[in-house]
Amino acid sequence: MWKEVLLLIRKEALLEWRQKYALNGILLYVVSAVFITYLSFGMGQGSLAVTTWNALFWIILLFSAINAVAKSFIQEHQGRLLYYYMIASPEAIILSKVVYNTFLTLFLSLLGFLVFGIIMGNPVQDIWLFLLNLLLGAIGFSACLTMVSSIASKAGNNGTLMAILSFPILIPILLMAIRISKNSIDGLDLSVSLDKLITLLAIDAIVVAVGFILFPYLWKS
């Protein structure tokens, strides 16, 4: 099982590396989104309020994560899916996709953070809490979005469906992540955010577990 998962993750990374345009596209997407917000807020003059910085960062992250993960099932050919169906177990497939997408989302969010920090200034005081929060957020986002992308890929009409199915489901994770990230920007003590971190972890666990249980039923059809 674990060997299978590792192999599938390697395959995902290899495929991504071979068609670099998708990866480069999404990286460019993050950078240009940050730049658009920078210009449209007219921030040549003054710096941004911390709450706005935080909200903008997470919204950009949300949209780039949706774009990055959406392709995990939607862009696969029908024939290739059939091939996976014959050689791998559904549990291994969902696990490998979730792990791979977590890395991808984490990578995107780190890049976003870097660009944000350079262009708009970096107000974060408690950097470790911020990074931990990014990791937990990335796990939740990728688990939700992988599941939704597999649902949307079955339903044909992809772009809109992906958005309307994933937005409401992502909101609990997004809300928790925004609150923890606000705490880490303000440099509050860890004990203030501990209950929120645990809640976020619990939501992540629920989403991953439910996805793991339900995916085989989707896969069969």
Binding site: P172, Y217, L218
Partner: peptide
């Protein structure tokens, strides 16, 4: 089949959304 999967998935997120988050 697909809507059953989505409905279970949505319910699993809906419960923390209305029972746990407001308490925080």
């Amino acid at each position: 089949r697909i809507s059953a999967v989505y409905s279970i998935f949505a319910f699993a997120v809906f419960i923390p959304l209305i029972f746990i988050l407001p308490r925080l």
